[in-house]
């Protein structure tokens, strides 16, 4: 073996791990987050005894959540609505699917028949019954969320744990049959911020500082869920 060959082998031995590192080391990943303030326009959602409307509470919290997330240059933040306007559930789902978003966070304020019920709760979807595979091997629109249910559960759990860590007493996570959202082709959660049927929580949800605190907790969980991606 000539000196030239030996040098070539040395160069190869040195450069191969570099090439490997360049291609397979975890890379920072850009992601698109859709924040969905529920209701809006003529659909006011729940209304507290004192007149606080769900559509306003969730829009303000959505704008605060956007502020928390937009500081990260790797994240693109899209709101389904950034003003008080009516919007169908199907339009919200279509919007997120069309931009191939990575995460969908829907913000709601809860209401119960009892004025004693309290605490935020994080919901994720139950799988939709899978029809027989069609010849084209296409996933029907309303079965698209089925592939993301485990990731949605992990995100829901992460937000609930974040709340518990920050001493926000919450009701944990719950898997339910969410309507229309089963068409989303990405992990999704519904965050119920608290109860407008409970006076204490209505007071908290009317407080800008509390809304910001909740927005920060959700933002931290969302950032944690966007793990570095192997190229």
């Amino acid at each position: 073996m000539s000196q030239l060959d030996r040098n070539a082998i040395r160069l190869l031995n040195f450069s191969l791990p570099l090439v490997f590192l360049l291609f397979f080391l975890p890379q920072a990943r850009s992601a698109t987050i859709v924040i969905d303030p529920a209701h809006g326009g003529t659909d006011v959602g729940s209304v507290s005894e004192s007149g606080e409307k769900e559509k306003d509470v969730v829009l303000d919290t959505a704008l605060l959540l956007k502020e928390c997330l937009i500081a990260d240059p790797e994240l693109k933040i899209v709101l389904t609505r950034n003003q008080d306007k009516s919007m169908s559930l199907v339009n919200r789902v279509d919007q997120a699917n069309s931009i191939q978003a990575d995460i969908f966070i829907s913000l709601h304020a809860d209401f119960s028949q009892s004025d004693q019920t309290k605490g935020p709760e994080i919901l994720y979807n139950q799988p939709v019954y899978v029809q027989e595979k069609n010849p084209a091997d296409m996933v029907p629109w309303d079965e698209r969320q089925n592939a993301f249910i485990e990731k949605s559960r992990v995100l829901a759990q992460s937000i609930a744990s974040g709340m518990a860590d920050q001493t926000v007493e919450n009701r944990g996570v719950r898997q339910v049959k969410l309507c229309v959202y089963h068409g989303l082709a990405m992990p999704m959660v519904v965050v119920e911020l608290g109860f407008l049927s409970n006076r204490t929580e209505t007071g908290l949800l009317s407080d800008q500082a509390y809304r910001k605190r909740i927005a920060e907790i959700i933002a931290a969980a969302v950032k944690n869920s966007i793990l570095p991606k192997t190229k």
Binding site: S46, H108, F111, S112, Q113, V176, E192, L196
Partner: peptide
């Protein structure tokens, strides 16, 4: 219906 996922589930 007064709304809310909790109220709706109930």
């Amino acid at each position: 219906h007064p709304g809310g996922s909790t109220g709706e589930l109930a």
